[in-house]
Nucleic acid binder design. Structure first.
Lengths: 330, 330
DNA sequence: CTGTTAGCGCTTTCAA
DNA sequence: TTGAAAGCGCTAACAG
């Protein structure tokens, strides 16, 4: 509506003080005589002045914005992470700039280097193998990474995927399952950790593991691979899916193929997305605490920004959630 | 790693040309002799120079960032909107700054006024009644709004909620349902439109409508209200839910109460979230094309930013999606 | 083709 | 308590 938004200068003029005075007063850097402060307040109100955050940022070097890079925002795991991160950011007066790399590792570098110039720090979920991530440590901005890193000196927040997988497998073993299969997603770094946990548990029991692999961590892939898993010669009596989405897809397709979950096959997943509770049968899963992970990552990042020392790795304990998709064998 | 990031000045010095030349070359505003261009390229590479977008923004007034305000990012309707918006933004080299107002209308104004200073334009979903939205039109930034507006001169993108609701109701009528109920969410502006569509259809047939109301558009609310809906004296034989989330919650609870969907009661929702297809029975719904809405809103906003004339209202046609949660009465 | 010169709106010494 | 002045890193006329 106004031609040009009012600037500090306008406020200064209107209140008959210097521009520096207004700046300091607004930022609470300094107090002034009540006369002056009142005049400034009046001018601000009168002009409808709003500070220009860009100009401020250029000087202070702070943008009050945190970047968050996720692999697919429609995946409930990531929208929960965003929720948690967002909440903490809000509590500190910060905004969140989200980028969705759409499961495309090639985009990541450009996108993140770009992002790094517009934010005070970033939180990133990546599909890159650690050896292709060197550049991340060179980005000159505080960064918190999801997942554990062997070499790279980056602070991280990770769920205990190995432990969670072990737990899940143990649960299946105790239920009496003997032919366990894993429907994995090898492009993910977490896949091998989960596989490791499963193998460790199964190895101790001398049980074999059949592994399938999906091209994307989606319901559609769960559906697509279902028939090849359950209509083979020696089908598994329990299936561990890389995530809940795949498990949901699998269960739906199994039902239409006339295979009953959990009677014919027990199914489990990872993440504990809300929808797992609403399908039939409800899905047994490992709660990786997505929202809390997002919040923890943000808190950690803020600590880094403040210059505090933080642990390299924040581990978040997973929790097994038992539901009807798993059933004892007799 | 470096003390101070290299600036344009450093590049200019290193390549023995003026700072203006470098600026123009980088922005492709102008071409120079290959000698000069080569020198600049070398200097940039050597120093690892990256343009400071903040400084640039301050001058150009453009941030290359679009703000998107949603009511709850974990609601698949909104994460799909974000997905669509994000995709279009990316195609144009823009970022998306997301804010989640958490279904809290009181936060909206502050959050949006704040956001408006950091972006080139914004797309907003709001729970505010139109009469409390006047300030939005005063924000001095291009803005596209979700939903239709009677008075406010804001460009909008809306699904045809009235039409969608009519469709859905018509479908139920043709299936032979006589006792139709609506589980609404009156805080939403779209609620009345849907209610209107339902009423119009039912009125024509001389059928009554019972209305229930939820406090939040969530699965939990669907669950919570289920018993009071189906265990009353004269329970409905069909229920239209404000959205799919509520329908999912309702169906789960109905099952545990021993009421069968669709045998005892048909259930339908709005949005066509992906999960509706994976529950049992699969949910009949109206596809509001969330992702496309996000994309359309972004496209429209970009047009506004470019200064083009745009229609006030972009209407997106809903599509009925028939699944097993609705069944003919006999 | 290339360079000079003003600033953008704000913060921040440093003086008064 | 206040203000003057020097920029932050960059773009945009305007000259040459």
């Amino acid at each position: 509506m106004k031609k040009t938004a009012p600037t500090l200068r306008d406020v200064a003029a209107a209140s008959n003080v210097s521009i520096a005075t207004v700046s300091k007063y607004i930022n609470g850097t300094q107090r002034f005589s009540s006369k002056v402060e009142a005049a400034i307040d009046a001018a601000i109100a009168g002009l409808g002045y709003k500070s220009n955050p860009l100009a401020k940022s250029m000087i202070t070097g702070r943008t009050d914005t945190i970047g968050l890079s996720v692999l697919d925002i429609t995946n409930p795991h990531f929208s929960s992470i965003l929720k948690g991160a967002q909440r903490v950011a809000n509590d500190h007066g910060l905004s969140v700039l989200v980028v969705d790399t759409e499961e495309n590792p090639n985009r990541e570098r450009r996108v993140l280097e770009d992002l790094s110039r517009r934010v005070d720090g970033m939180i990133v979920a990546s599909r890159l193998p650690e050896k292709d991530m060197g550049w991340m440590a060179d980005i000159d901005k505080p960064l918190v990474f999801f997942g554990s890193l062997a070499e790279l000196p980056l602070p991280t927040v990770a769920s205990d995927d190995h432990g969670g997988a072990f737990m899940l497998t143990q649960h299946l073993r105790m239920l009496g399952h003997k032919r366990i299969a894993y429907l994995g997603f090898s492009k993910s770094r977490r896949d091998e950790e989960r596989l490791g946990g499963i193998r460790e548990c199964l190895g101790a029991a001398g049980l074999p593991l059949v592994v399938f692999n999906a091209d994307s961590p989606s319901m559609l892939e769960g559906e697509r691979l279902c028939s090849s898993i359950i209509l083979g010669a020696n089908p598994p009596d329990a299936l561990i899916c890389y995530n809940d989405l795949m498990a949901l897809g699998f269960m739906k397709e199994a039902a239409s193929l006339g295979v009953s979950v959990p009677r014919d096959i027990s199914v489990v997943g990872f993440d504990n997305i809300p929808y797992g509770k609403y399908v039939t049968p409800a899905l047994t899963t490992v709660d990786l605490q997505s929202e809390r992970m997002g919040a923890s990552a943000m808190e950690k990042l803020l600590a880094v920004i403040r210059g505090e020392d933080v642990d390299k790795l924040t581990k978040i304990a997973p929790q097994l959630v038992l539901r009807a998709s798993t059933q004892p064998r007799t």
